[in-house]
Design a protein around this nucleic acid. Sequence first.
RNA 1: GACCCCUUCGUCUAGUCAGGUCUAGGACGCCAGAUUUUCAUUCUGGUAACACGGGUUCGAAUCCCGUAGGGGUCGCCA
Length: 473
Amino acid sequence: MTVVTRFAPSPTGFLHIGGARTALFNWLFARHHDRHGDGGKYLLRVEDTDRKRSTEAAVEAIYDGLQWLGLDWDGEAISQFSRVERHRAAVEQLLADGHAYNCYCTPEELAELRAEARANGQRWRYDGRWRDRDPSDAPAGVAPAVRLKAPPDGETLIEDLVQGKVRVANGELDDMILMRADGTPTYMLAVVVDDHDMGITHVIRGDDHLTNAFRQKQLFNAFGWDTPAFAHIPLIHGADGAKLSKRHGALGVDAYRDQGFLPEALTNYLLRLGWSHGDDEIISTDEAISWFGLENVGKSPARFDVEKLTALNGNYIRQCDDHRLVELILPALTIELGREPSQPLKERLERGMRGLKDRAKTVPELVESAMLYVHERRIKLNDKALKLVDEEAQYRLQSVRDGFAALDQWTEDALEAWVKNFAEETGTKMGKVAQPLRAVLTGTTVSPSIFEVLVVLGREESLGRLGDAVDDA
RNA sequence: GACCCCUUCGUCUAGUCAGGUCUAGGACGCCAGAUUUUCAUUCUGGUAACACGGGUUCGAAUCCCGUAGGGGUCGCCA
């Protein structure tokens, strides 16, 4: 059987981290079955039926987020709102079949009943007062909402692929509204009709939808349709253990991009939140597609840990292609510089990336460390660097400058050999030479190997920076 | 409150379905050491958990019951 999954975000804001993981799991499940099973499709459906809260900007933000993460969907994204006629027709069908009925309670009336129940410490549940009433009782001038005639007895069982068998007594569920008095379909109705029409075989979504699944199953039954398999994945919690939501510290994936996280690091991290494959931690997308399955999804919620994400990100940055890293730091450098870095500078940065990327866990850190290659003479030394260049050091640096200038090979090996030899002959510790050198070359006390820096900067620039410092003396 | 779900190191998790190989493994964090021109990387070692109480069993992290704690849902939102 071909597997068809979908991600169904509502465009009321950015794509947040929980949504991203839901999308990831749906995507992986479909791609896994496409590769190892009888085919798999991953569809995108935008749940924009709430016209008041849905915005075009949010739709774009969601597309952007998904694309950045590399979670490409099959076919065109479907707008749920565009299917409103189909939803209405489905409700008509239910009405005609006697599985639904008109309810003439007004929202105000319902609110009152709800408040009353609460005041008495009772749980509110619609009592089905219009369920079996004669249509001729309908009050004039009141537009009805349509409710499902839900089974009053027995129980509804969900065989969830993650949570296992979960059952609830039908008496706990009331007759849900399928169509509002204004003729617009509700989420419950739209989801069921769309999932059916789109041929969805597996509904993978957050655990917060588990209770919806019971109602949706009743609806599928009323239509006489097969119910898709459900998989309710545990939620992501914040550091305090409460559900991470837009109102509760959940950031959009764009925020993580802006903070300098790589998409592959974020998906790898998200994947490991609730899913595991033995002791594997660093998992490529390719491996994830091969290994992913719902049976390895845990049942308990996980807390979001930026430290671990950061560690993972550092790992991916180290493995990252140098050219791509330069592209990633370019926007920030352009701001620092006030103009787009020149081609020679970009090439210098790419040469320097080898030593820089080992020392960065995020893109902004990379930007900061890369500045040593960006600064123009004369470069400013920070306080710590300044302290290293005392009189004694300056004296030594003169010799170094002269020695370097006389070198006919400007390579790491040649430079290092010269410094080692110089240290030995003058009875100085390497650090006493290398640190002041680092200070005047980079303006800081921390950098990649000083010999690498020398080569990346090139002979002319290196000698220039050295001279700037030495000639002060 | 009602209904539903969850519970292994601080955090993410392996192990639980098929009880013994678990004096509970890995990762992040933290601590110490090694390498070293700084920092980082890398490497080595260490820290730290089966929520609690009963039961079943020769034997339980694993099965059963209860308790506690945490979470989710209770909209003419999605």
